[in-house]
C-alpha cells in the first residue's frame, strides 16, 4: 500500500510540474539512491508481477529501497531505451525477455538499443515452455495424428499464435519445417482471443505458452506436446520423447543492467536476485504462473542469450519477417 501511495504522490508531483511549469522541465535529473527495477510493460502484467515479487525480497537483503518502475509501450522497446541511459552503478536494472533481446535485434532495421553494447546480463529468472494444442472437440489425438492430418489436408494446416513476430510464431514455423507442410500462420492479438478461438474450434491448432492452455486441458483444449527438455505435466509428452529431437521452444524472463555497471556490483546484485527467487514463497508463486525458476549466474545468462540467437536466428531469417 505504501508503494502505491508513494507512487501516487510521485505522479501528482510530476504531473503538477508538467502542468504548471514548461514541458522541458519534465525530465529532471534522477536522484541517486533507491534501486529501481525497470519493467518495460504495464503494471499488472506477468513481468510486472514477477518484478514486484523480487523487489519485495531485495528490499530486505540489500537493505535499500527497491521500486518497480513501469515504462510500457512499443512492446517493451520504450522502457529498454529508457533503461540504457540510466546510471550504471547498480541502482537500475531492466526486466527483459527473448522478444526484446533475441527477436527484436533481428527484425528491426533501426533499433534504439543494442542488447550487447548497451547492457550486461545479470541473471535469468525463469523459463516457460511452449505447447502445441488442438481444440478439445478435435479428432486429432496426438502429434503423429496431427502430422498425418496435415499431410492429407494441407489447405487447412493453419496455426494460431498470440502475436506476429513472437517466439510462438517462429516455433510454429519450426514445426512446419519438420512436418514438411507449409503451415499458414494466423496471429491473434494476445493469448486470450487465441484461446477463445481454439476452444470454439475456429482454428485447427495453436502454439502458445504452457500456462494459458493447461487450465483448459484436456476438456476444452487438448495439449498434444510440450516443448521443454522434460515433461511439464505427467500426461503430456514432450516433442523430444516423441522423436522430434530438435523441436524445442522455451521462453524466459531475465534481468540485465546498463553496460558500464562494474563487475563486483553485478555479482552482488546477482546473488541477491538469485537468493530472492529461490525463497520458497517466491518459487511457489512463480510455479503457480506455470513457469520454472532458474536463477542463473551472469555468465550462464550470457550463454543462454548466445544460444537462443543461434537457434532462432536461422528460422527468423528464413521467415522473412520484418517489423519496420
Amino acid at each position: 500500500m505504501r508503494s502505491i501511495i508513494s507512487k501516487w504522490v510521485g505522479m501528482v508531483v510530476i504531473a503538477a510540474v508538467v502542468v504548471f511549469l514548461s514541458v522541458s522541465l519534465g525530465s529532471a535529473q534522477e536522484i541517486k539512491g533507491p534501486i529501481k527495477i525497470i519493467v518495460p510493460y504495464p503494471a499488472g502484467g506477468g513481468s510486472d508481477v514477477l518484478a514486484r515479487l523480487i523487489a519485495d525480497k531485495l528490499k530486505d537483503s540489500l537493505s535499500q529501497t527497491v521500486i518497480v518502475e513501469n515504462k510500457p509501450g512499443a512492446g517493451g522497446r520504450i522502457g529498454t531505451e529508457y533503461a540504457k541511459g540510466q546510471p550504471a552503478d547498480g541502482s537500475s536494472m531492466l526486466f527483459v525477455n527473448p522478444a526484446l533481446f533475441v527477436v527484436s535485434p533481428m527484425v528491426y532495421s533501426k533499433l534504439s538499443y543494442d542488447p550487447d553494447k548497451d547492457f550486461n546480463p545479470l541473471s535469468q529468472i525463469n523459463t516457460y515452455e511452449f505447447v502445441l494444442s488442438v481444440p478439445g472437440s478435435s479428432s486429432i489425438k496426438d502429434v503423429k495424428g496431427l502430422m498425418e492430418w496435415m499431410k492429407k489436408n494441407p489447405k487447412q494446416a493453419n496455426y494460431g499464435s498470440p502475436a506476429a513476430g513472437s517466439l510462438p510464431h517462429f516455433f510454429g514455423l519450426m514445426i512446419s519445417k519438420y512436418a514438411g507442410v507449409e503451415m499458414v500462420h494466423a496471429p491473434y492479438s494476445g493469448s486470450a482471443p487465441l484461446v477463445t478461438a481454439l476452444i470454439g474450434a475456429q482454428i485447427p491448432m495453436a502454439v502458445d505458452v504452457f500456462d494459458t492452455h493447461i487450465q483448459h486441458h484436456p476438456d476444452k483444449i487438448r495439449i498434444l506436446a510440450t516443448a521443454g527438455a522434460s515433461r511439464k505435466h505427467p500426461d503430456i509428452p514432450t516433442f523430444k520423447e516423441l522423436g522430434y529431437k530438435d523441436i524445442e521452444g522455451v521462453g524466459w524472463n531475465g534481468i540485465v543492467v546498463p553496460s558500464k555497471t562494474p563487475k563486483p556490483v553485478i555479482d552482488k546484485l546477482n546473488q541477491a536476485v538469485v537468493k530472492a527467487i529461490k525463497m520458497p514463497d517466491v518459487t511457489q508463486k512463480i510455479q503457480q504462473m506455470g513457469s520454472d525458476v532458474t536463477g542463473t549466474t551472469a555468465e550462464e545468462f550470457g550463454n543462454i542469450l548466445k544460444h537462443d540467437r543461434e537457434k532462432w536466428g536461422p528460422i527468423i531469417k528464413a521467415s522473412g519477417f520484418k517489423a519496420d
Binding site: G73, I78, V107, K110, A163, A164, H169, P187, F321, A323
Partner: peptide
C-alpha cells in the same frame, strides 16, 4: 501502430510512442 496480422508498424513515423 503495429499491424496485428503482419507485425509491422504503420504510420508511426519512427516514433516509438506510436508503435502501439
Amino acid at each position: 501502430g503495429t499491424d496485428i496480422t503482419s507485425g509491422t508498424q504503420r504510420f508511426s513515423f519512427g516514433i516509438p510512442e506510436l508503435a502501439d
